[in-house]
Computed example of a mutant assay.
Amino acid sequence: MAAMSTVGGGGSLSEVYQNSKRLLIKTRDGLEKLERLEYTSASGLGSPELSDLVKGDIVEIQSLCIEMDRLWRSIPAKSQRDLWKRKVEQVAEEADSFKGSLDKYLSRNQRRIQETREREELLGRVNGDGSHVLRIFDDEAQARLSARNSATMLEEAYSTGVAILSKYSEQRDHLKRAQRKALDVLNTLGLSNSVLRLIERRNRVDKWIKYGGMIVTIVILIYFWRWTR
């Protein structure tokens, strides 16, 4: 197949794609470890070695995307070409997303390093009540850690709410399809209009129940957000 052809001994398109997918998984794991270190460490400082490894993996994925972009263009069949184009674009988008996440992490880490240096310089110039100043900085660090934890909890609650609303949407689609099938069957059997009206009333009741659940979910999210502020 054209998708399996090699160019300059660099491996087939399928092989390069599989390598890129493995690197994506490795990169995602590395970013998750960096975020855990960031939110569990009292200083908030992560691992420079790990961040360098993640950065190297992202660069390698981007290089593989360039190679795959060259390979899929040489596929004769348009359908296969379009399929591989979408696959390569998905890998490139994930790599760009990971790069954005790493850049934000490095920016936060650099800011914390600068704050630590300023703190040490200030404590070095303090003569006398140095312990009081140290306690102030420790309180500020604890407050920042608490704020990050609250933000994480809020994001988790928001994700839960989105998942619930998506589930409601799926159930609505299932109900619509089931209603259409039921109406087709009822029309085929020639049942009375009263039965059809009964089904319609039941569907309206289910719809109000669904809307009520959505409103309750939104109210809970708003209350939780205000509570964590």
Rank of each mutant, 00 (worst) to 15 (best):
A77P: 13
V59L: 06
I75S: 02
R73P: 05
S79Y: 10
E35Q: 12
R36H: 15
V91M: 02
Q62D: 09
D82Q: 11
R73Y: 07
G30Q: 03
L50S: 04
V59E: 11
Q90K: 11
S41N: 05
R86N: 10
G44P: 00
I61N: 01
L64E: 07
E67S: 12
E89N: 10
A92E: 13
S63W: 05
V91K: 00
R73N: 09
G56Y: 03
S43N: 05
V88L: 03
E35K: 07
L53C: 08
E49H: 13
E67I: 14
Q90I: 11
P48I: 00
I75G: 03
D57L: 06
E38R: 12
I58F: 02
D69M: 07
L83D: 13
C65M: 08
S51E: 05
A95T: 04
D96N: 14
L83Y: 08
L71D: 10
E32V: 12
A77W: 13
G44F: 00
L37V: 04
W72V: 04
D103H: 05
K85Q: 06
V59K: 10
D52Q: 12
D96C: 10
V59N: 04
L64Q: 05
Y39P: 07
T40D: 13
M68D: 06
V54R: 00
A77K: 15
Q90G: 13
